[in-house]
Design a protein around this nucleic acid. Structure first.
Length: 267
DNA sequence: AAGCCTATCAACCGCCGTTGG
DNA sequence: TCCAACGGCGGTTGATAGGCT
C-alpha cells in the first residue's frame, strides 16, 4: 500500500528560482495565504502546496527578518528553549520576523554547541555569577562569554500527589547529567499539561510555602531577574499558578518580565 | 591551486491534529 | 461518526560556501 504522495510526481524540487518566488508572491498578494494546494495549482507552480507554504512563510512573506540574530534575540531563545523545548514555532512567535525554521537552524548550529560547551546548569551558574558581579559592580567577563541573565526557571518540577517535588530529592542532580535535556523537557511537559489543564482546580496545586507569598510570585515560573533569587540547585520553586488561561498567558507574563529586565518594555 | 572538511541554511519528509463533507 | 484532505510542525537532509591543509 504505502502512503499516498502529497504531491504529483512532476513537481520541481530544490531551490526556488526567482521566477517561482515572484509567481508565488504575486499570487499570495492577490489571493492571500492558505489553500496552498490550490496556490500551487492556480499559480502554475510545479511545486507541492506544502513547499509553497514553506517558501512563503520562511522567505517571501513581508516582514521576515533574515540573518544577524541579535544578542537579545539569542538570549530570548536560550531562555525560551528550556521553557518550551523544541517547540520552534512557539519560540518563533516570540521573535517577530523570525521563522521557526531559522530559529531551529540557529539553535542547532550555534546555541546547542555553545550550551554543550557550557551546559545549561553551568550556563545558569555563569549567569548568576555575572548577575552578582553586576550587582557589585565588578564585571569581569570574557568577550565571548554569554550575556549574564538569570535563568532559574528551568526547574519546572513535577508535582507529586503528596505535594513533594521530585526535583528536590537529594539525588536530583541535573548538572552535567547526560539526561539533562530530556529531564528538563520531561519536567516542562508535565507542567505545561498542568498549566493547560484549566477548569480542573484539582490539578492546580499551590504548595503551602507558596500560599503565603504574593500572587506576584507567579512570576517565578519560568524566568526571573530577581537578584535575590537562590540558585536553582538549592531551591525549588514549588508552584503552579492557581489558574492560567493558557500557557500563552504564562509566557506573556514571563516575556514582560524579560522585556523589563532587558530594558525593552516599550518595544 | 586543489582537495578535503566543516558550517550553514533552505528545503524536504513524514507525522499528527484539525476541518469539512 | 467516519474519513480524506489540508495545514502545521519538528526532524533531517543535501547543496553550497568558506576555511584549512
Amino acid at each position: 500500500m504505502g502512503r499516498r504522495p502529497c504531491c504529483p510526481k512532476e513537481i520541481n524540487k530544490g531551490a526556488w528560482s526567482r521566477e517561482e518566488d515572484q509567481t508565488l508572491s504575486k499570487y499570495v498578494a492577490i489571493h492571500g495565504e492558505g489553500k496552498w494546494q490550490k496556490v500551487a495549482q492556480n499559480a502554475g507552480l510545479k511545486r507541492c502546496g506544502k513547499s509553497c507554504r514553506q517558501r512563503w512563510l520562511n522567505y517571501l512573506k513581508p516582514g521576515i527578518k533574515r540573518g544577524d540574530i541579535s544578542v537579545d534575540e539569542e538570549d530570548l531563545i536560550i531562555r525560551l528553549h528550556p521553557l518550551l523545548g523544541n517547540r520552534w514555532a512557539l519560540i518563533a512567535k516570540r521573535l517577530p520576523g523570525r521563522t521557526d525554521n531559522e530559529i531551529k537552524n540557529y539553535w542547532n548550529t550555534n546555541l546547542s554547541k555553545k550550551l554543550q560547551k557550557q551546559p545549561t546548569s553551568s550556563y545558569v551558574s555563569s549567569l548568576q555569577r555575572k548577575h552578582h558581579e553586576e550587582e557589585t559592580k565588578q564585571v569581569h567577563v570574557a568577550p565571548e562569554a554569554p550575556r549574564p541573565r538569570r535563568v532559574k526557571a528551568v526547574q519546572h518540577s513535577k508535582m507529586l500527589d503528596n505535594g513533594v517535588c521530585e526535583n528536590c530529592t537529594p539525588s536530583n542532580k541535573v548538572e552535567g547529567s547526560s539526561d539533562e535535556a530530556s529531564f528538563t523537557d520531561f519536567l516542562i511537559d508535565i507542567d505545561q499539561s498542568h498549566l493547560l489543564n484549566i477548569g480542573d482546580d484539582s490539578n492546580s496545586k499551590v504548595l503551602p510555602q507558596m500560599e503565603e507569598e504574593d500572587h506576584n510570585n507567579i512570576n517565578n515560573v519560568g524566568l526571573t531577574n530577581s537578584p535575590s533569587s537562590s540558585p536553582p540547585s538549592d531551591h525549588c520553586h514549588h508552584l503552579l499558578p492557581e489558574k492560567f488561561d493558557s500557557l500563552e498567558t504564562l509566557l506573556d507574563v514571563e516575556l514582560k518580565r524579560m522585556a523589563s529586565f532587558l530594558g525593552l518594555e516599550n518595544d
